[in-house]
Design a protein around this nucleic acid. Structure first.
Lengths: 188, 188
DNA sequence: CCCATTTGAGACATATATGTCTCATGAAAA
DNA sequence: TTTTCATGAGACATATATGTCTCAAATGGG
């Protein structure tokens, strides 16, 4: 078997894709290959084309987010705590989330379906947290999930800009959400 | 003089640009011209190329946002009220804001400078509102502006998805912000 | 009506991005 | 060492996007 310790060309290219395509969606495959430290031909050996690369990146993003959420809140004692753990786990994956939102993924029915499945689970989680008293039942669930997504993204931006540490950003985001959308305004 | 009532080709193209480039930053000039109901040659008569179009769109976005903010909060009795008015005025311009954030505008020094100038004015406004007791002084101003920007964007998404009316979205966004970041948690 | 201007359609050339191929090199496995 | 395999570099053809030009038609002002 070949060396599996050194990141494979696939992984390098996908990582470079997250770096470049998020900043400039018009980045060429040549730029991506170069940024990955890989020849242009090698990129085509692993991905049949731009669409194929984007599909692979989307699945990577979805899988990583799934795993992060699973690991973070599988043992949470409550739905409210699960949302809290989820927040901290997803902030470092802000670029993955950004990619799924910005890249036209609607073309791929399977990916869009999986993405919507995640959104639906989030809605159920929010409804459960409402019943626990975390969120105000008078606030629409749609608005809560949108706020969660966007505050999560704000937290990632904040960390990237080095305005806050990941830990600080998580706390700020959580406080903002539970105070802003909460039933009781004590913050924890 | 030519007819100024019918939208000029320039305006049509810029509007089409906001429609298409926000959804797919790789949209070709041919697609933009077609969506604007204009020949491809006509687009080139008004804009020397893609970069020129993007520059014109960026200036349009900045100008519209400036005017909306000016009109909304020039007569506000307080900084806190000014922020409230600003929120309502900017939500309908969410696509303009989105464009400035996503399109690589950093290349154009003049536009980037103007954008940062707006950001700086926002920071001063937030600091003033802190002194009025609207925001918690313990919360970093950077985080407040980031939250404002992202909740603003969430509100625009919510309106676009027809989950809420513009009025409802404005109220939800305001409540979320002042509860989430406020010094006193009464919401108004 | 006549004239000036703008426009749409399309031809054309060029630039850039993409996809495929070959070949020599280097690293790892046998 | 020998073999196998992935890779990098680059040539090549193709596809798509871009920029320029011409010309006939439409529009609006005089």
């Amino acid at each position: 078997m070949k060396n599996m310790i050194r990141p494979s060309a696939e992984q390098s290219v996908i990582a470079a894709g997250f770096d470049l395509l998020n900043e400039n969606p018009k980045a060429s495959l040549a730029e991506i290959a170069s940024h990955a430290g890989v020849g242009r031909a090698t990129l085509h050996r692993h991905f049949s084309g731009r669409e194929d690369l984007i599909r692979a990146m989307a699945w990577t993003a979805i899988r990583e987010m799934d795993q992060a959420v699973e690991a973070a809140c599988s043992e949470s004692p409550s739905y409210s705590d699960a949302i809290r753990q989820m927040l901290g786990a997803l902030i470092p994956l802000g670029d993955r989330y950004q990619f799924l939102l910005r890249e036209p993924v609607e073309d791929h029915a399977d990916i869009a379906a999986e993405f919507q499945k995640q959104q639906h689970e989030m809605r159920e989680l929010v409804d459960a947290a409402k019943n626990e008293g975390l969120f105000d039942t008078a606030v629409p669930t749609d608005w809560i999930t949108r706020s969660f997504d966007n505050i999560l993204y704000a937290a990632w931006e904040s960390v990237m800009a080095e305005e806050t540490t990941p830990s600080q950003a998580t706390t700020l985001a959580w406080q903002t959400l539970v105070h802003g959308l909460g039933a009781n305004k004590n913050g924890q």
